[in-house]
Nucleic acid binder design. Structure first.
Length: 988
DNA sequence: TTGCTCTGCTTACC
DNA sequence: ACTGGTAAGCAGAGCGC
């Protein structure tokens, strides 16, 4: 137990003030007891944690107690349930069975007759049904805008609003007569000569308009070419874009999907609140009259009063996305279990939907807790599992068709449905399974869309409600990395709920298909409980984050949760272009005008040169202060006015306004679009929401909310530079990326120079930081002031190490914080997740000893101990009583699919292939293979197939040696000296 | 077979 | 549809001896 606790604690430190998670952890204990719901759930987990107790009463289970080698805990493993003789089988009580329900639902409700339209999407049909029923919303007081999409049958955009007064989803169809279009720089008179265009069936009409062309910094006349449908603009096959291209003419803004275009033109902000009056939508202004919001508005106005007019104007326009309170909504989580055959390790294919669905659970914010279970032969009824909540119900079904039909009834009812991996599994599976079971499509609430791109992952939406697949959201690299600070290592429900909620899934040894009803129902319900809880914990932090991200990105919820940072940022900038009447440039326009490439990258094959890493001064250092530039790249982008239109701008008088350390100049007339958008996000976060998030004068709930905003902003601030530097970003501009990093290099190099000038030794630094040897307060403030003055950047004190061990390796060090004594390990092999546990254990042992070192005398003492430990452990490798098989396990992720390895076949791939052959287990891209290094054969064996005798002792000794060498190096201990006793004596 | 270099692959840091 | 570059370290592959 001790070991586990420690690792948790380290994590906390790591994340301090870096993630939402840190906030979660610290606030959890205070909060308990405050909220009724939270408490019951926590109690449940308490009970859950004691699994041993839980199963002592269960006579059918054979319990095996194993000493866990990693944490020294007693882990209980369950053996398969014993096979029962038929006489033991207890029937399910009749009153627990589903009793039938004839009430019509879905499109069957209301006796509406709809004509058939071929190739119509299921959602389009539903919208026709609503139209005929007169249920398209015309009046709505307060609706949270969740989704915007395009309906092919009506050829119009439509919106899904969550009615805050009734908790229902209301669908509204565009009443503004918005039409699909693209732009051309040709005048109408020229375009009229294009017979192909004029004669094209999808062509509608021309309109002369004006746009600001940022690249030339001129307002230009353009022609808006309207098409009949979005497909006529830039779909596949013949369309206006292609007709223009065929005539050597170019189309602008033709590749933007219609519903996004609609959002841009109408300046809709998903996640904000709208009213509808006689079919017309209007944004509901947040109540400025309230004292609190008045105060905040005033504070924010003051904050930006000295900034550029671009930033002031932008902030004016978008303050309400942060200030409008986020309503909590009614929502339901669900999860299904299917009957996977014995020894079948493959994930069932949702499109085939071959296996029967045996259990479905529902948990909702309105208190619903329910499991539908299919009656199957050979399974025994018993009273509910001990931890099964008293307020949850179980309903048994004799037929799978009835079970699924009743599930659909529930799905139509809830406005928001939360799943974990519902896109690729649950919803997808149910949709196809329903077809197989011949359940009418009119009852089926699910809309399966083929995803875009080569991978073409499925996207499952609801015809009426809104589906949020949390897997998608948590899997998002920016969310896991920036918002949650890497708190969870894999994007499994188990890992995420463990990390964020401190709760785990129900652990099971038996296969799902052989679980008794009581186990199955609890297992199934637990998943839904966790899934819903993930959106509810910490005052609905995740839900708030989702809505906030919709507001910032201006993306409909269904799209926001499924796209990555690059699409988010792209959308923000497209929206902003349209808002200000700027023409969205074509990718090629930028790259032809602004070629760049003045310096090669350090690593071959990379697009441009990146950051500078200072060579460390090896050895032991005491009292090392780390100073770093606060969000270096975003600051540079703002302060140096970097944007695709400002860098290498066309103005003659800007040409001598050279950017430091680059051959490029930047604009002196206007602030660039990248610069003011990123600048605004950065400023409002650093100067306002971040301080507010830890302002003790505020209530915890308020701080919580500010923290969520602050984290959401961080996602964009940290992600923006990476996106700007990506060739795939449509506004990519190489000189912008190069200038950002080049100015960064300049800044850190100048800082080293300056430090040395004022007599401070720089020991190390990476990208945006300098490690200073025992600087005085005065020296530090001197540096800070100098940086603000000379570089326009904030250089701040970040942390102090009482002890720092550097080797000659970059990105590798061990330091101990001065105040908290927290051990900060960077880069060392022992920290990597592919390092065997036994090495990590030895390593942490060494660190325990180093923890107390504050001077050289203590250090010599520690040295002796360390040598003993290392020698001792080297001997232990391979001894049967020393380490377990799991201790030797190496975890390596597959970066590609198994078949993608054509050049070399690494160990983990060989192990995976062997396991696949032996058991049929398929490994997907991104999955982690756990294997052991073995003597002979493959050199590697999946842990499932290996035993302790197989391990390659020599290899493991070698691994331990090299892992420890990294730290021993810095401590001035050579490995040979540890091995030889004679030399050891000489050493001391 | 051994030693060496180069490259592929994975994971870390910022 | 897809955020960036820099660095370390292991292991496979190829090659000359």
């Amino acid at each position: 137990m001790a070991g586990k606790k420690k690792s948790k604690k380290k994590k906390e430190e790591d994340l301090k003030q870096k993630s939402l998670f840190s906030y979660v952890e610290s606030s959890k204990s205070e909060k308990m007891g405050e909220e009724e719901e939270e408490r019951t759930l926590d109690e449940e987990t308490e009970e859950l944690q004691d699994i041993s107790e839980e199963f002592e009463e269960d006579a059918e289970m054979e319990v095996e107690v194993v000493q866990d080698q990693i944490y020294g805990e007693d882990i209980i493993k369950f053996k398969k349930a014993k096979v029962k003789s038929p006489s033991e089988i207890i029937p399910i009580p009749q009153d627990l069975f589903f009793k039938g329900n004839d009430k019509p639902f879905g499109l069957k409700e209301g006796n509406i007759k709809l004509e058939k339209i071929s190739r119509e999407s299921v959602t389009s049909k539903y919208i026709r049904y609503l139209i005929q029923k007169g249920e398209i919303v015309q009046n709505l007081e307060r609706g949270l805008l969740l989704d915007v999409d395009y309906d092919g049958t009506q050829n119009k955009a439509y919106c899904k609003f969550y009615d805050l007064d009734t908790g229902e989803v209301k669908i509204w169809i565009d009443t503004t007569n918005h039409e699909p279009y693209c732009l051309s720089k040709e005048p109408i008179s020229e375009l009229k000569k294009n017979k192909e265009l004029i004669g094209y069936d999808g062509f509608q009409r021309f309109e002369e308009i004006k746009r600001m062309d940022l690249l030339s910094d001129k307002e230009i006349k353009m022609t808006k070419i309207y098409g009949k449908t979005p497909i006529n603009i830039g779909g596949s096959g013949t369309n206006i874009k292609n007709i223009l291209a065929g005539n050597d003419k170019k189309a602008w803004e033709a590749d933007i999907r219609y519903h996004l275009n609609y959002i841009f033109d109408r300046q809709l902000i998903p996640g904000l609140i709208y009213s509808i009056e006689n079919g017309t939508i209007k944004k509901v202004k947040f109540k400025e009259s309230e004292d609190e919001s008045k105060k905040i508005t005033q504070e924010l106005h003051n904050l930006f009063k000295d900034e550029s007019i671009e930033i002031q104007e932008f902030s004016e326009k978008f303050l309400d996305i942060f200030l409008t309170p986020i309503p909590d909504v009614k929502r339901m989580a669900m999860d299904i279990e299917v009957n996977i055959g014995e020894h079948d390790y493959r994930v069932p294919d949702p499109r085939q939907a071959k296996q029967e669905i045996i259990s479905i659970s529902f948990v909702a914010t309105d208190g619903l807790k329910r499991v539908y279970i299919l009656e199957r032969e050979g399974f025994t009824y018993s009273k509910p599992h001990k931890n099964f909540p008293a307020d949850a119900e179980v309903v048994f079904y004799k037929s799978e068709k009835a079970l699924l039909t009743e599930t659909f009834r529930i799905l139509w009812k809830y406005p928001i449905v939360i799943t974990f991996n519902g896109d690729n599994f649950d919803l997808n599976y149910m949709f196809h399974r329903a077809d197989k079971l011949k359940i009418s499509r009119d009852l089926n609430p699910i809309h399966v869309k083929r995803g875009f791109g080569i991978l073409s992952k499925a996207e499952c939406d609801l015809r009426k409600g809104v589906h949020i697949d949390l897997f998608n959201f948590f899997f998002n690299r920016s969310i896991s990395g920036y918002a949650f600070g890497g708190a969870y290592e894999s994007s499994s429900l188990n890992a995420i709920s463990d990390a964020l909620l401190g709760k785990e899934k129900y652990q099971h040894e038996e296969e799902i298909h052989e679980m008794e009803y009581n186990i199955l129902s609890w297992y199934n319900l637990k998943d839904s409980l966790l899934t819903l809880e993930l959106t509810k914990f910490n005052s609905s932090l995740v839900w708030n984050l989702i809505i906030l991200l919709c507001r910032i990105t201006k993306m409909p919820i269904h799209e926001m949760v499924r796209r990555q940072i690059s699409t988010w940022i792209q959308n923000i900038f497209y929206f902003e272009h349209r808002r200000r009447g700027f023409l969205i440039p074509r990718r090629a326009e930028i790259s032809e005008l602004k070629k760049g490439g003045f310096k090669k990258s350090v690593i071959e094959g990379k697009g441009f040169q990146g950051a500078y890493v200072i060579s460390p001064v090896p050895g032991i250092h005491y009292d090392v202060v780390v100073m770093d530039f606060a969000s270096l790249y975003p600051s540079i982008i703002k302060e140096y006015n970097l944007s695709y239109e400002t860098v290498l701008c066309p103005h003659e008088d800007c040409k001598d306004n050279l950017l430091r350390n680059t051959p490029y100049h930047t604009c002196t007339h206007k602030m660039g679009i990248f610069a003011y958008v990123v600048g605004f996000f950065r400023d409002i976060r650093v100067k306002y929401f971040k301080p507010k998030s830890s302002d003790k004068a505020l209530s915890e709930k308020q701080r919580n909310y500010y923290n969520t905003i602050q984290q959401a902003l961080k996602v964009f601030i940290n992600g923006s530079y990476g996106v700007f530097g990506s060739q795939n970003f449509p506004l990519f501009c190489l000189p912008v990326a190069e200038s950002t990093t080049s100015i960064g290099q300049y800044s850190i190099k100048q800082t080293i120079k300056k430090s040395e000038e004022i007599g401070v030794k720089v020991l190390y630094g990476d990208t945006d930081s300098v490690f200073l040897l025992n600087p005085s307060k005065d020296q530090m403030s001197k540096l800070s002031h100098w940086s603000k003055q000379e570089l326009d950047l904030d250089l701040e004190e970040e942390k102090t190490y009482q002890f720092l061990a550097l080797s000659e390796r970059k990105k590798n060090y061990v330091g101990i914080y001065k105040d908290s004594k927290y051990v900060d390990i960077k880069g060392l092999v022992a920290k990597k997740k592919n390092t065997p546990d036994f090495i990590k254990k030895v390593f942490s042992h060494l660190l325990e000893i180093l923890k107390n070192v504050t001077n050289n005398e203590e250090f010599s003492k520690a040295k002796k101990e360390i040598i003993e430990i290392v020698r001792d452990n080297l001997k232990k490798i391979g001894k049967s009583d020393a380490f377990s098989l799991e201790d030797y396990a190496i975890n390596i992720a597959l970066q590609k699919s198994l078949s993608g390895y054509d050049k070399v076949i690494p160990q983990h791939v060989r192990a995976a292939l062997e396991l696949k052959k032996a058991t049929g287990k398929e490994f997907q891209k991104g999955e982690t293979v756990t294997f052991i290094k073995t003597k002979g054969g493959n050199g590697a064996k999946a842990i499932e197939l290996a035993s302790l005798q197989d391990i390659d002792i020599k290899k493991y000794k070698e691994l331990l040696r090299s892992a420890l060498e990294q730290i021993l190096d810095a401590l001035g201990i050579s490995f040979d000296e540890i091995k030889g006793i004679k030399k050891m004596d000489a050493f001391f």
